[in-house]
Amino acid sequence: MRLLSHNLLQCNVKNCKSNNFPLKIQVDKSNIINCEFRKEPLVKLIPKLDWNALAITVHNLAKNKEFPEKFSPALLDDQKFMQELHRILMETHIIEGALICEGCNKRYPIKNGIPNMILNDEEV
């Protein structure tokens, strides 16, 4: 799972309505696998993301406080930043670990690169 997909997931437990996004990532194993840098899809993707959720996640994971909390259009021309963003969104794969809801403490395991978002009967 990459942070691109992480942006699509919030806690789905019934009645868990606050502090349920973004899910906190516990990383036990991750890989960075290089792929071709293409600017257009990235530029198209940025306005669709929840930037705040991405920034919180990057700050937590990489302790990278330089990652901008707010997006500004000037960043699109910052080649170094765009490559960093490409690495974060497209090339970083969480292989083992978990997604944890900070609202209700529900833990969604990640195994073999697949997050398991399935709920128990009592959570539906």
Partner: peptide
């Protein structure tokens, strides 16, 4: 190239997508 795909194990019925910007 593994940057072409992601798989999520989820029940679509219970999936509440966060309100993203887009």
């Amino acid at each position: 190239d593994p940057s072409m795909y992601d798989i999520i194990n989820i029940n679509v019925k219970h999936w509440q997508p966060p309100t993203l910007n887009g």
